[in-house]
Write a protein that binds this DNA or RNA. Structure first.
Lengths: 361, 361
DNA sequence: TATCGATGATTAAACGATTAATCAGGCGAT
DNA sequence: ATCGCCTGATTAATCGTTTAATCATCGATA
């Protein structure tokens, strides 16, 4: 909306100079004497001058707006991401336009197109389950996972998995059930890979995928964790706090106390994780840092780009593409009960009696 | 970013007409013969013409962008709201710029100012705990609760409370603990008001506020619900699913089975509500409808407004300001256990032995 | 003294769309 | 035959900013 605020010409008129001089003084580009420049800045500030983005956009081809594309906005991580991106972008002078794709791939394409039509200078994309993003014709920062080709910046999900696993291992767990949602997700696979890499030596590990299970038994179906406990599993390492919550309540409901009889861990430190009972042990990513790096790389690419060509659409790269995760130990994890499947307390070779880490069929 | 796409003049040149005619044909405003208009539309479509928002904005003072302001983006409801607003806005041809206030009031003001500086045509505000929003100088749609002055559109939180209470009442609950976060929230007060209005007759009701309790005992402290059960409470009506989740896990942890020994209900149907065990009974608001109404009212106000003046900043009003909530009955609510505090099964006057609905000190 | 260069400012064009004002015909009515 | 009106199109101005090109002035150099 056209604020009634003063325009460039208004300042120029006030000081009896030309509009071009004002523009030069404010941007520091042309040749303006130091004293006049100072005077211009002063009156601009005094009058509360705010440049018209529309005018500038028309002239420069830069809108100072970036688009934020998320696989599905309903993802509980969305608030964290959006907040961090918005903060980073606005400190860099950019606005953030959101685009929702409701999980749908074609909708996502449409959403991206709408952003392009709005002349965004660049976009931050969190791709859905490792789908490659097509060349969109403007600089793109991709936040996925370091092992994804084209990734710009991401948390070190593998490392996060390792931390979780080491925590569980140190507590004494030797039979761990990993709970994931969908094997197509690069993020989940990295987390799981990290967990397995630590537990491979001397622990029995199995993976349960929720989505395939739900396709058979319906949404929100029980995961059958009580049976798993009966089979000797003492820890449930979930790939997201959402699944951890699901596991926790299912176990509690079955009368299995957490963490005394079974440990539960999650990922992402979602909003409820500190306030449920027991509070969830989880691995958190430093979204603020990730967003800062992504936006910084994006802004750099935008700056280098010639506004005329619409050719370059390859994901931009950041110097520091891998941000470590942070283990948050709370009450949902503890040592396993002493009874089951602990062949002997005879220190060393007791471990070898447990099956080596194995992979799911 | 300046797409390399064809401009208005390009189409004009292709057909050998003037740019003005093309503009008129495409907008349907000036006087253009039907056949020429058709031909223009055809080539525009063929060439994939997309108007430059910057050019249009500069001329018309309309950016076709609205701002979305939320009290704190970390709110678990945010995804729902953002998704619904984005859908409604984009179908109306508007982009959505997000502004986060991190819960802080001064930050919120800054965020709003940034939106104004970006020339948004209007904004949708979900105010923080009933803070009145100041005159911002552009049309504003407020989503809060019908009883808030200046509210544009909202779910019927009071009615939602009534539905929850009637459900609980029909199940036979006579001692209900309401769990809220902060007494300053209009939304929460309406929900609680609705609950109490139904339960006032013949049930004992008490309210527990989390935030004051946490100020004393620290974040994530136990709510002491086991004691409440011992006192005879059979149902916990929470003002949000987040609190319901907290209550549920605390009860489960204390060995109190839900719903056999105590019922738990929430609000908002948040992401985890269907997948925890037992799945949460809750009241859902129709965000899609609310967003549609809010955006419609906003767009109408934007259309009527003279782009030149920046005076009107009062919240716009919608025709249909109150959208009913929908009760979602799942497994977390059931009839209370038969034993405790049921003075007698002697039908009628048994009720009067229970204290009338009372208010918290 | 005439000229060159640097300095500090101004002019004017451009970005892409909208829209008020204008203009050229054609047709009916006086 | 002339005037006025309606239709369908064009002209030209405008929104606010940026920036290349131009210009004036002054001091220093040849």
């Amino acid at each position: 909306m056209a604020r009634s605020g003063p325009k460039l010409t208004r300042i120029a008129r006030t000081l009896g100079v030309s509009a071009a001089t004002v523009s030069n003084a404010l941007s520091g580009k042309g040749r303006v004497s130091a004293e006049l420049a100072e005077k211009i800045r002063a009156t601009a500030a005094e009058l509360g001058y705010v440049p018209s983005l529309a005018g500038r956009a028309l002239r420069t081809g830069r809108t100072a707006v970036i688009g934020l594309v998320l696989p599905d906005i309903a993802n509980p991580l969305f608030p964290q991401i959006a907040q961090a991106i918005e903060l980073a972008a606005s400190s860099a002078g950019y606005g953030v336009l959101i685009a929702d794709s409701r999980g749908d791939v074609t909708t996502q394409t449409k959403a991206i197109e709408r952003l392009i039509d709005r002349d965004v200078d660049g976009m931050v994309i969190v791709p859905r389950r490792g789908t490659r993003i097509a060349d969109v014709g403007c600089p793109v920062a991709v936040i996925d996972t370091p092992s994804t080709p084209g990734n710009t910046v991401a948390a070190d999900h593998w490392g996060g998995g390792r931390q979780i696993a080491e925590h569980l291992k140190a507590l004494g767990h030797r039979r761990v059930l990993i709970i994931g949602n969908n094997p197509a997700s690069n993020v989940q696979n990295d987390r799981i890979g990290g967990i397995r890499s630590v537990l491979a030596d001397g622990a029995f590990v199995e993976t349960l995928w929720i989505e395939p299970l739900e396709r058979e038994q319906g949404k929100g179906c029980p995961l059958g964790l009580a049976e798993k406990v009966a089979e000797g599993f003492t820890a449930f390492a979930c790939v997201s706090d959402l699944h951890a919550l699901r596991a926790l309540t299912e176990l509690q409901r079955a009368g299995i106390n957490v963490p005394e009889k079974a440990s539960v861990t999650g990922f992402d430190d979602l909003i409820w994780s500190p306030v449920v009972t027991p509070a969830l042990t989880t691995a958190r990513m430093d979204m603020t840092r990730i967003a800062a790096i992504a936006v910084e790389a994006l802004v750099k690419a935008i700056g280098e780009r010639d506004p005329a060509d619409a050719a370059i659409g390859a994901p931009v790269t950041a110097d520091d593409a891998e941000v470590p995760m942070q283990l948050v130990v709370r009450q949902s994890s503890a040592a396993p009960p002493r009874i089951q499947f602990q062949p002997a307390q005879t220190t060393a070779n007791a471990r070898t009696s447990a099956p080596e880490g194995e992979h799911q069929p």
